[in-house]
Design a protein around this nucleic acid. Structure first.
Lengths: 193, 193
DNA sequence: GTCTATATTCAGATAGAC
DNA sequence: GTCTATCTGAATATAGAC
C-alpha cells in the first residue's frame, strides 16, 4: 500500500514524538505543532490517534514473527537458530529503532479488541522462543534451565537494544555487527572469562 | 515517618492500579473508585497525583543505591560482588514487585525538576554497575567486553524480574533463591552447556 | 473523613469556509 | 490541504457543608 510522502512524514514525526514523551503524553496538538500546522490537519492523515499506534505496532510485530518463523523453519542447530534470532533482532532494532521502541514501550495503550490481539501475538512470539530454547535443552546444547526464565532472560537481553539507535548514544560508533558479536557472546557464554 | 493505615492502603492501591493501567491512564477517580469513595477524598492523603509517583520512585531508587553501595564497599572479588548485586536485586524485586515495576516503567512521567533528579540518580546507578564490571574485566575475571553493552545487558537481565511477582505467574512456585541461582548461571556463564 | 459542587484546563475529534 | 471555530468529554484539583 502506497503512502503519500506527507503522510509518511506525519507518521514518522509522530513516532519520534511518541518515543520522546510517551503515547499518552503526546497530544495531537504536539504532533501538529512539530509539523507547523493546525491540529485539525492531522486528521487528513489518520482517523484517530489510536490508528497511529495500531499501524506501527502490528506492522513491526508482524516483521518479528516472519523473522522467527524463518529461523524456526531452517535446518540450523538450536545454537545456530539462536544466533540467527539474535542477529535478526539486532538488525531490525538498528534499522527501525523507533518502531521497536514503540513495540516495547507503548503496546499497552492499545484499546480492546486490538490490545487482546496484540497480547496474543506477543505470547505466541514468546512461545516460539521457548520452543527454540526447549529444543536446545533437550538436545543437550543448552544447559538445563527453567524454560520461562530462559525465555525471559534471553528476550530481556535483546529488548533494550533499540535504545542504542534512538538517542545520541553510540558515540564510539560500534556497528551492529560488533554489537551482535558481543550480545551473542553474552547470551551463549555469559561474562565470566 | 509514620503513615496512617488509611494512607498506606491508599498508596498501595494506587500502586497496583498504576501498574495495571499505567500512570497516565490511571485517574484519581479510578483509585477512589477502587477504594469506594469519591475522588475528592483522595486529596486527604496526597497533595497531587505526582506526589504518589515521586514518593515511591525516590524511596525505591534509594533502596537500590544503598544496596549497591554496600556491595561496592565490600572486600568481595568482582565475581562475588556481581553475585551479591544479583542477589540483592532479586530480593528487592520479589519483596516489592510493584514498587520496582513503577521504577522501571513510570519514571518518565515525573515532571521537572524531579525528572532530572531521578535521571541523574539512575545514571549514577548505572555508572556504579559499570565500575564493578570494569574492575572485573581489568582483573581478568570477566571477559573483555564493551562496558556499556555489558552494563546494559546485565541490568536488562535483571530488570524484567519484578513481573514474576506481580501477576499470577509463578505457578510452579519457583522460589527467589532458585530464581537467583538460574539468573546467576545465565549472567555468569550463559546458556550453552 | 466523607460528600456535593464547581473551577479550570486540556484532549480528541468534527464541521465547514477558503 | 489549510485554517477557524466548536463540540464533547474528561481529568486534576479545590471549596465548603456535614
Amino acid at each position: 500500500m502506497k503512502v503519500s510522502p506527507k503522510k509518511e512524514e506525519f507518521l514518522q514525526e509522530s513516532l519520534k514524538l511518541i518515543h520522546e514523551k510517551g503515547f499518552k503524553a503526546t497530544t495531537m496538538r504536539d504532533i501538529a505543532e512539530r509539523l507547523n500546522f493546525d491540529v485539525s490537519n492531522s486528521y487528513n492523515y489518520i482517523k484517530s490517534k489510536q490508528e497511529i499506534l495500531e499501524s506501527f505496532l502490528f506492522r513491526t510485530s508482524n516483521e518479528f514473527h516472519k523473522t522467527i518463523d524463518n529461523v524456526l523453519d531452517s535446518n540450523y542447530s538450536a545454537e545456530d537458530k539462536l544466533k540467527s534470532l539474535i542477529s535478526s533482532h539486532i538488525r531490525i532494532a538498528s534499522e527501525k529503532p523507533y518502531e521497536v521502541a514503540l513495540l516495547v514501550n507503548e503496546w499497552r495503550n492499545l484499546k480492546e479488541p486490538k490490545l487482546n490481539e496484540f497480547v496474543t501475538l506477543r505470547d505466541t512470539y514468546e512461545k516460539k522462543v521457548s520452543k527454540l530454547l526447549e529444543d536446545g535443552i533437550n538436545n543437550k546444547i543448552f544447559k538445563q534451565m527453567d524454560i520461562r526464565i530462559a525465555t525471559s532472560v534471553v528476550l530481556a537481553s535483546l529488548r533494550w537494544f533499540y535504545d542504542e539507535y534512538t538517542v545520541k548514544k553510540n558515540e564510539k560508533n560500534l556497528n551492529p555487527i560488533e554489537f551482535e558479536r558481543q550480545i551473542v557472546g553474552f547470551i551463549l557464554s555469559g561474562i565470566l572469562l
